[in-house]
Design a protein around this nucleic acid. Structure first.
Length: 573
RNA sequence: GACUCUGUAGCUCAGCUGGUAGAGCAAUUGACUCUUAAUCAAUGGGUCGAGGGUUCGAACCCCUCCGGGGUCACCA
């Protein structure tokens, strides 16, 4: 970056950087800085009666400075929080030379710098637990000004809120908005709780391919890529279900994976093109067992995070206490539409759609129509956790047929706050039925349903060798985190949500200017003046350009010798 | 993809019916030995997202484009 593009404040900080070097201070030292405490520990354990913490070594980012002459206060922020520091000139600089205080601390340090301090903890007259600094060192200089957020009595001033900047520059968001970090700490805690539960049960955490030759296990548009050495297309996985079930065939009796999945579809408050799903498969279980297990898992997560099961989500209170309500899909539809659709054919379903005002088109099969009715009329009603069970067979090509009704499958989804959170089956392990179902999907796809699944013949072959009866469950980690942290948008629970790339205005490279005979030192200046492309130069009169250049030089005190008027007109010819 | 709101100083925001841009914080200089949104005084800082148009004159009106938010559509 050229200096001319820097703001005044950035230039001043670069100046400070140089002055520090001139004073023999390395603004980016290499050596380890051994701390022996953190902000949280100091704030929670300091006892002035003992007193403890009399030899602390602490490091953090300088977030505010209050300079009061010969003595200063500031705040340092580390991973655990903020602590006040106190520095007095004559303690830092016992001799005649007061440079370290007057110059280095007061002038050359800025908000955002990372420093280390050695000293002892005490309580100020105002009652604030504070590190009395005996010595400090610069650990890293910040040359870009941080948004300054202030707070008093729980009220925040000048909060850094622009969503675009918060998501694009998450590091800034994390520095300046402490509550943001909380969300991500909770996200990790959720995952750790689940992992602990699975490990306690002896289930095995595995990794399966992200690059898949056939994007199976879910109906969704995949991202495509290409492998050069094999000269073949590959897809980023939309699910990992078929690989995990292969492992059950292979003799693992409980496997799970936290996996990033990728879907090339729209983005909104609840969808990001890459997202995290946990899938688990346990042999010799059915979907009833899995419902119990899912309840246990979610209740445990809620308790670990909140110490209770009743959690605020938006303007609602959601209670994750076991057991959750269970209702079949057909009962649910009957309850919310008054229609009993069991045993209905496609035409019957179309008529129901017509009567209750659900839109449909001719590519929709039975499964899709039922899905549409449920999605439109029922889904939104389930605020409290509710298992919807026994989905029609057309909607669930990987799920075992219901033990009592071959039109249905042994499937459940867990609905919370009107949205799907989990999806689980008694897994289909009949290889012949599986192949039939895949072929039915193919027919749907030919009929125009672009969400129908690809056929994975190797998966069918695996089933032919025999897969034990198994139940599997998948849960969206991002959505679970949204619920557990009361976040309205998926972007708030992803550290780096997908964004369109930042675009800069188009400009010609410096070489194009130099080709015209323009000296290098003027190129940046012309660009700063707004002539980002050489074609723009050609449109102005030489006399005007000459005038502007000299004016700019003078106004900004660049101190460059002005070009001759002749030179300028030569550039433009 | 549609509709709608939005883009002004490092940050949060004003800016009237169109008349050459303002505040607070941050920054700079100075004062100040227990402050905490420190305080007090002075100073500097902006191609008003980009390009085009209307106009004597555009941050403001019109068009196109580029970001972003929201709603809807799409989305096991």
């Amino acid at each position: 970056m050229s200096n001319i593009e820097l703001s005044e404040q950035e230039l001043i900080r670069r100046g400070s950087l140089q002055k520090l070097r001139d004073l023999g201070i390395n603004p980016y030292p290499a050596n380890e800085f051994k701390i022996n405490t953190n902000a949280k520990e100091i704030l929670t354990t300091f006892n002035p009666d003992i007193p403890n913490l009399q030899e602390v070594v602490f490091a953090g980012r300088l977030m505010s400075q209050r300079i009061m002459g010969k003595v200063s206060f500031g705040e340092l922020q580390d991973e655990t929080g903020r602590i006040q520091i106190y520095i007095s000139r004559d303690e830092i600089c016992p001799g005649e030379d007061k440079t370290l205080y007057n110059e280095v601390f007061k002038k050359l340090l800025d908000i955002g710098d990372i420093i280390g301090v050695m000293g002892y903890v005490f309580i100020t007259q105002m009652g604030e637990t504070t590190i009395h600094v005996r010595e400090f060192v610069l650990l890293s200089k910040s040359i870009k000004p941080l948004p300054v957020v202030k707070e008093k009595d729980g009220r925040t001033f000048d909060a850094f809120t622009d969503p675009e900047q918060r998501y694009r520059q998450r590091y800034l968001d994390l520095i300046v908005n402490p509550h943001v970090k909380e969300v991500f700490l909770k996200r990790t805690k959720i995952i750790n709780q689940m992992r602990e539960l699975f490990n306690e049960r002896g289930y095995i955490e595995v990794e399966t391919p992200i690059l898949q030759p056939i994007p199976g296990g879910a109906s969704a548009r995949p991202f495509m890529t290409h492998h050069n050495a094999l000269n073949m297309p590959l897809y980023l996985r939309v699910a990992n279900e078929l690989y995990l079930k292969r492992l059950i065939v292979g003799g693992f009796e409980g496997v799970y994976e936290f996996s990033k999945d990728f879907r090339n579809e729209g983005m909104d408050r609840t969808h990001n093109p890459e997202f995290t799903v946990m899938e688990i498969y346990v042999a010799y279980k059915d979907y009833h067992w899995m419902m119990d297990f899912t309840e246990e898992m979610i209740e445990r997560v809620a308790m670990a995070l909140h110490g209770k099961t009743l959690i605020p989500v938006g303007d609602k209170q959601i209670d994750f206490k076991r057991p959750f309500k269970r209702i079949t899909m057909f009962e649910s539809i009957r309850e919310h539409t008054g229609y009993d659709i069991s045993g209905m054919d496609e035409d019957g379903l179309r008529e129901v759609c017509q009567n209750i005002g659900v839109e449909y088109d001719k590519t929709m099969g039975k499964g899709k129509l039922i899905d549409e009715i449920f999605g439109e009329k029922c889904e939104g009603h389930y605020i409290q956790p509710t298992f919807i069970t026994d989905y029609p067979v057309e909607m669930s090509p990987l799920c075992k047929k219901h033990r009592d009704n071959p039109d249905l499958t042994e499937r459940f989804e867990l609905m919370v706050n009107g949205k799907e959170l989990c999806n689980a089956y008694s897994e289909l392990n009949d290889p012949i039925d599986q192949l039939d179902r895949f072929q039915e999907q193919l027919r749907l796809s030919e009929k125009g349903d672009n969400e129908a699944m690809f056929i994975d013949l190797d998966f069918v072959r695996a089933l032919e060798y025999g897969m034990p009866p198994t139940s599997g469950m998948g849960i969206g980690i991002d959505r679970l985190t949204m619920l557990m942290t009361n976040s309205a948008s998926i972007q708030d629970v992803l550290l780096f949500p997908q964004m369109k790339p930042e675009k800069r205005a188009e400009e010609d490279p410096a070489e194009k200017y130099i080709e015209l005979g323009i000296p290098y030192e003027w190129v940046e200046i012309l660009m700063k003046m707004g002539y980002k492309r050489v074609s723009q130069l050609k449109e102005v009169k030489p006399a005007k350009l000459f005038n502007d250049i000299c004016g700019y030089n003078k106004k900004n005190q660049l101190g460059l010798p002005n070009p001759a008027a002749n030179d300028v007109s030569n550039w433009l010819n």
